[in-house]
Computed example of a mutant assay.
Amino acid sequence: MSRVIEENGRRSTEKELWSDKKRTIFGLPISFTKYTLTDTRLIIKSGFLNIKEDEIMLYRITDITYKASLWERMFGVGKLFCDSADKSATNFIVGPIKEAVKVRDLLSDNVDEQRDKKRIRGNEFFNDSMDDDMDLQN
């Protein structure tokens, strides 16, 4: 599924790659949290009466960790713990979701693709404090 988005006066199409709801007891999608992965961003929409929607640009995601307890593995779900350079969502959890390993791989591939498109290197996300520490040691 594709959608047209308008950004800075330009129109572009965005392709939806994956969508799922947060899984609760027994791996059932009885939740008011929905995850949508497009080729440029991850959208986390939560709430029933009061709705909150977080949008994380993929190139800002710096780390993805997969975790699943024995109980979660029994029901085919897992969680993705993500770190990002986004100010509103520095650490966030996607899940529990079905096929978390496949989603992690899909997310990781698209993060790399977006970084290549925007010509962003990983070290641009880290602050200069590491350089300052190196200067002190010399």
Results as ranks from 00 to 15, higher is better:
Glu55Gln: 06
Ile56Asn: 03
Ile5Arg: 11
Ile44Ser: 05
Thr62Met: 04
Asp83Thr: 11
Asp132Gly: 06
Thr24His: 07
Trp18Asp: 09
Asp131Gln: 11
Glu55Pro: 02
Ala68Asp: 03
Gly122Ile: 10
Gly47Tyr: 02
Phe32Thr: 00
Phe125His: 05
Asp132Pro: 00
Phe126Cys: 10
Ala100Leu: 02
Asn138Val: 12
Met1Ser: 15
Asp128Trp: 08
Leu37His: 01
Asp135Thr: 07
Ile43Pro: 02
Ser69Tyr: 06
Tyr35Cys: 07
Asp54Val: 01
Phe81Met: 09
Asp20Gln: 03
Arg115His: 09
Asp131Cys: 02
Asp132Ile: 14
Arg10Gly: 00
Leu28Gln: 15
Ile56Thr: 03
Val77His: 04
Ser31Gly: 04
Tyr59Gln: 13
Lys79Thr: 00
Gly78Lys: 01
Asp86Gln: 10
Ile64His: 03
Leu17Gln: 05
Arg104Thr: 04
Ala68Asn: 10
Arg121Cys: 00
Asn110Arg: 10
Gly76Asp: 14
Gly78Asp: 03
Asp128Phe: 11
Asn123His: 13
Lys21Trp: 03
Arg3His: 15
Ile120Val: 12
Lys52Arg: 06
Phe75Tyr: 15
Ile64Ser: 07
Met1Arg: 09
Glu124Cys: 07
Leu58Ala: 00
Thr13Lys: 11
Leu42Ala: 07
Ser46Cys: 11
Gln114Ser: 15
Thr33Phe: 04
Met57Arg: 13
Phe75His: 08
Leu37Cys: 03
Trp18Ile: 04
Ile44Leu: 08
Ile61Leu: 12
Ile5Gln: 06
Ile51Cys: 09
Asn91Thr: 05
Leu58Gln: 01
Lys52Ser: 10
Leu42Cys: 05
Leu49Ser: 05
Lys67Thr: 04
